[in-house]
Design a protein around this nucleic acid. Structure first.
Lengths: 346, 346
DNA sequence: GGTGTTTTGAGGTGCGCAACTCATTTTGAG
DNA sequence: CTCAAAATGAGTTGCGCACCTCAAAACACC
């Protein structure tokens, strides 16, 4: 009836006895210190393995008096999504200080590869872990690899650089997000035929490009009655998005759906309402004060969201687990694609 | 540019000096041990407050050699959702043992108030924390209050007992979940008019009743073209659900939507397909192997889900934070209402 | 005042590990 | 075999706290 999910606790002393060596040797192996013969290393490793030994996190934490430093490299400028991430990190301050963690926010122009790369290089040696909203560019990739070589743990946040040797990516699968948006637009249009508009920041951004890719995939294969118009590039700016969309709406009277891939949401909503096209199915991204209002008003029909609080906490937890050598709870740290409609607004 | 989110680390000694008392007194206050004059308690509390002192989690953990014991009181019998929770707890075993936590699963008949109450009473004194899938009944409420009085931390899981003095509820807002289901059915039906069927386990279960309440709310106010048929009570059994639904489908040719509130999904799907009514919009709950398949096949259109992994981990984290006296990260532990469609299947 | 009770202080011990020193043993090269 | 270098063992210290004991001080009551 009652079934225990855990086992008894071993200590380093037990491992030393098991392996037939001294505590000092176990310590050397555990921390990759030099001066141990390979076969000794093996014996210790095997003893650890055999007993599935877990160092006591609390004891290890207590013994290393040095606090850990993490850096969050984020876009400068007003970006509500990033501001939310920052706010959630602030909310964790008690949690962080109880674990003697120092988290520093570093604002930089993440859209300029050389600037971003320079910012990253500057961190080398000073931080135990770095979370970065990364542009996928050779210079950035090299900077990330250098950080890793210098011993820092690195996670990419929101936007990935798969080709770099970063330890982890905290963010959503953007192709799947685009597919989800496509399915929502298609389903919510409800059998009508017509055209679908797409507004993005820029197709040069990896995440936007991937979302559009997924969106088109679904539209093509599942909603043949809907035709997707060429992507408008609004640069995530309200004014430009509004202007471009207004012109498009004027040209096509049969637009029934709209996918806003990035920001510029205010402009998109304004163009829709000023054209009196309130019935167009409008799907966008992220839950902010604005999109929340639009959802409640019925202007937006659904928002695809990646929980910024979860992303902030997952990034910290992953960095900490990496630094401690603990395993990562993949299931826990995975960022899900949330569909948010009026009634399940968080 | 670089902004630090944390402050320097104080120790208990600092607090003692600040408050002008000895370490022993601080210790007594911190652990609610008797024999301290009220004004002394206040002085210490204020010093802690003033410096926003956080005890070092690792040191505290290390010092208390006694492992913590948590009990999870869950329904007996085959319930995929509960099995998932159990599986996720198993995946955490490394995490748990590193924190010297012992989690035990206790299966009982949670649908029989007196049996459940007796199971809870039996735990008293043996556990530091209890998570329970609770029936809302006076006997259960009393048992929970007794546990709390005995010093255990108690969280309700999935199903709440708001009137009991449990410390926390880990689960979703079921009224909002029902509302979300209603909005989905209404929107996905796409403007057609017709009838909507509702299959539940029992209207006596609090969570089912709340979901139906929310569902009806939305249907009545927002989708006047759809009329909701009387609720079928399938007792979460496949055979019974199938039989009842088959009869209903036979009677009404104009059923365009279906909300399955609880389990019995297999039977519901079978009734639909055997009646050749594949185009009925079908919204249900939870992502299991079955609903996953049905979503991929297009039989189900959407599933409202509460992430069982998140629930399991949140319950453990909340119990641990409560036991340690740490603050709870409410935002982190809140269970969200996930809308799962084919393309954002987790 | 004296008595008993309550409150407070001082101090010790140990949790498991990291990080270090220094003495001793083993190894390998010549 | 010799000698230096490498490897290993034995041991210490301290991280911050929980938990405990015992003595001293403050207090209440008669």
């Amino acid at each position: 009836m009652a079934e225990t999910l855990t086992t008894v606790a071993l200590t380093l002393k037990d491992i030393a006895r098991e392996a037939g060596v001294s505590l000092a040797t176990v310590d050397r192996v555990l921390h990759n210190r030099p001066g141990v013969r390979p076969d000794m290393v093996r014996r210790v490793r095997e003893a650890i393995e055999r007993n599935s030994f877990q160092p006591h996190v609390a004891a290890a934490e207590l013994a290393r008096s040095r606090a850990r430093r993490f850096a969050f490299v984020m876009p400068s400028g007003p970006n509500p999504f990033m501001q939310q991430i920052e706010a959630y990190l602030g909310e964790m301050s008690g949690w962080l200080s109880a674990r003697r963690l120092k988290v520093e926010m570093i604002a930089t122009d993440v859209f300029d590869a050389s600037v971003l790369a320079a910012s990253l290089e500057a961190l080398s040696g000073d931080y135990d872990g770095v979370a970065v909203v990364a542009l996928d560019h050779p210079a950035v990739r090299a900077a990330i690899n250098d950080l890793v070589d210098a011993g820092a743990k690195v996670v990419t946040l929101v936007s990935d650089v798969p080709s770099a040797r970063r330890h982890h990516y905290v963010g959503i699968d953007n192709i799947a997000a685009g597919r989800t948006a496509g399915a929502l637009v298609g389903r919510l249009v409800g059998g009508r035929s017509g055209k679908v508009a797409v507004v993005a920041g820029s197709q040069g951004l990896r995440d936007h490009a991937e979302r559009i890719f997924g969106f088109n995939q679904v539209m093509a294969s599942e909603f043949p009655d809907l035709s997707v118009l060429p992507v408008l590039e609004g640069r995530d700016e309200d004014a430009r998005s509004e202007q471009l969309l207004a012109r498009l709406l004027g040209k096509h009277a049969d637009i029934v759906g709209l996918y806003n891939v990035g920001a510029g949401t205010q402009g998109v909503a304004k163009a829709l309402s000023e054209a009196g096209r309130d019935k167009v199915v409008f799907v966008g991204h992220d839950v902010t004060a604005l999109t929340r209002r639009l959802l409640l008003q019925g202007v937006m029909d659904a928002a695809i969201s990646q929980n910024p609080g979860h992303e902030a906490r997952a990034a910290v937890r992953v960095l900490l687990a990496l630094a401690r050598g603990e395993p990562i709870l993949r299931e826990q740290e995975k960022i899900r694609i949330d569909i948010v409609m009026r009634d399940n607004l968080p």
